[in-house]
């Protein structure tokens, strides 16, 4: 429904006027075309080359991908992402839903409580990482405090333990994001038709049944949005790991994002780094593209 179509008349000035909107749009579209899609193509191409410290263009086919899947640190990173991603999404959704339902009971001072639940989202992951890094540090943090209070046998050294360190990333990430998920669910709860709930209650539905059968199913769009946002944040997680554990102890908390960075820029294996970035992109695209597609299609 272009306005310019209805107003079309011949003449150079008119043609310029008709083209003006597209001219205004085109610089940013061109920038995105180059800096997003051109760069994606470039990195994609690099993943098939023998690039080491600098980009080079000797074609090696699937070699980088074959090598990538033979590197144990990559296996660790992928396994960590699976553990971290699943727990992060599940706990954030469970906690967010619970807090949203609790906050939806006509709570006095709801606004203040919500503000407190949500403020971590305004912080940098580096700040969150620093706070939790020292709080979880057995030498000065929780463990030392508990022992100081007289619980001599108390022990909490997950952050120094290769098997448990990944869970400290989950702890800090859940702290940062769960309030935001709460806000999404709360908005969903506020959008539910109250007439339907009233009718169900008149029919004698218990509160538990009411939530399980009517309220939670209606929150499906909120669940979808929360899942997409959390999954894409999990895959992109980089700052938090760097600040909290630096990927350690050893490589115990490496994620694909940290793997890509260290292989590309410190280990000078740019081809393998590019291959790992491509896999990250594919994973995110598999989640985001269907979501954007459905969101944009129903509008137009």
């Amino acid at each position: 429904m272009s306005i310019s179509e209805t107003a079309r008349r011949p003449g150079a000035a008119d043609r310029l006027r008709d083209a003006l909107p597209k001219l205004v749009l085109s610089p940013t579209v061109a920038i995105v075309a180059v800096f997003v899609y051109g760069f994606i193509a470039f990195t994609f191409y690099l993943s098939f080359t023998d690039s080491r410290i600098l980009p080079s263009f000797g074609w090696v086919g699937w070699q980088n991908y074959e090598n990538l899947f033979r590197i144990r640190a990559w296996d660790t990173a992928v396994a960590n992402l699976a553990i971290f991603g699943l727990l992060y999404i599940a706990i954030c959704c469970a906690l967010g839903l619970m807090l949203a339902i609790l906050l939806d009971q006509k709570i006095r001072a709801e606004g203040a409580i919500r503000t407190i639940y949500l403020y971590p989202m305004a912080l940098s992951f580096i700040v969150t990482g620093v706070a939790w890094k020292w709080f979880l540090d057995p030498g000065i943090g929780l463990e030392a405090v508990m022992r100081g209070w007289g619980w001599e046998s108390f022990s909490f050294g997950w952050i120094k333990d290769s098997d448990m360190a990944i869970y400290t990333i989950v702890i800090a990430a859940v702290w940062q994001t769960s309030g935001f998920v709460m806000a999404m669910f709360l908005a969903g709860l506020r959008g539910i038709d109250s007439e339907m709930l009233r009718a169900a209650r008149i029919d004698g539905a218990t509160n538990f049944a009411l939530y399980r059968r009517i309220v939670i199913p209606q929150l499906r769009p909120a669940f979808m949005s929360a899942f997409v946002v959390l999954a894409h944040m999990a895959i992109k997680s980089y700052d938090l790991v760097i600040a909290l554990t630096g990927g350690g102890p050893g490589t115990a908390t490496e994620l694909p994002a940290t793997f890509m960075y260290s292989y590309t820029f410190t280990r000078n294996q740019m081809g393998i780094g590019a291959a790992s970035a491509v896999i990250m992109l594919m994973t995110i695209a598999a989640i985001i593209v269907p979501y954007l597609w459905s969101e944009l299609r129903e509008k137009s």
């Binding site: 760069f39 990195t43 890509m260 960075y261």
Partner: peptide
């Protein structure tokens, strides 16, 4: 919009 969601690791090298 898709450009906001890409892992930025994809653009670091270029």
């Amino acid at each position: 919009l898709f450009g906001c969601f890409i892992p930025f690791q994809m653009v670091l090298i270029p």
